[in-house]
Amino acid sequence: MRRPKNKKFFPQFFALLLILLVLVSVYLFCDVSAQTLNYNIPRRLGVLAAIAVVALSVGVSTVVFQTVTENYILTPGIMGLDNLYIFIQGLTIYLLGNGTFNMMASTSHFVFTLIVMMCASVGIFLFMFKLNKGDIYFVVLSGLIFGMAFGGLSSFMQVLMDPSEFSILEGRMFASFNRINMDLLGIAALVSTAVSVWMFCDIRSLNAIVLGRRQAIALGVEYKRVVLKSLIVVALLTSASTALVGPVTFLGILVVSIARHIFPTFRHDILIGGSILTGLCALVFGMLATERVMQFSVPLGVIINFVGGLYFIYLMLKVKRV
């Protein structure tokens, strides 16, 4: 709980902010000449804004998810929402055929994707939660199983598609920050900020849930309500960030595990803040790496999952006993 030693983490926050500032300025002003100024700077600002939305969603949802599952090796990305997203994209392309490229980038399609994902995920979670009287692991596993079923369906569609249709889908299968539409960005930012603020109302209860279900209830936390709310928040945030940029399955575990190293505390305000900052740094750095070093050859999403996946294996091998 709150004590004067809150200030303990100031140096870490300060250092992260500094790193972020350096990365952002390098990213913004690298290779900018007078001719390209008007094109490059606004585009890059847009990318940074998208990064901010994703870092917020991923940071909040992963920390909350790990707290309510009482487990630090899980990430909300595994709950099947990625596969649902790819399924919706694939279905649209498959049903509408080849002329869909413009349609795919439109605001209405984005809103459609977002609403379907939110309704489906919240619906599944609520149903499973009720069905199993609040056993959270069951809810997670059901999400995963649904994800596998959607994965099966979408790989079926991928086989059926002709290569030109597939190339449109391939562009949507991996997270990328380079095709952001400003309208979409506004909607996603609104959704994720509102949802995060809503979650912050219960931040004290989250702190107590760290002690486990029994002790949280003994301390007067409305355990069921908070856990259910957390699941809804996780579903909404994951939907928002996935619909905006595409699947970033293993970004959450990467960012939050690093943040836990830097900020070893149970306090969720600090932990979430730290995770968002870490996420920002990681994403801007990744953006620099894809644009400068790899010359756009591999989408950022693929690299994030590659690095995050390797980190997960490392984490699993070094964890003592869960």
Partner: peptide
């Protein structure tokens, strides 16, 4: 509860302070 435990790193004083929650 029986054998309470937590995955988080919490000091004894922080834990006891939770009692005031």
């Amino acid at each position: 509860g029986q054998s309470p435990n937590s995955a988080a790193r919490i000091t004894v004083e922080e834990l006891v302070s939770f009692g005031r929650f």
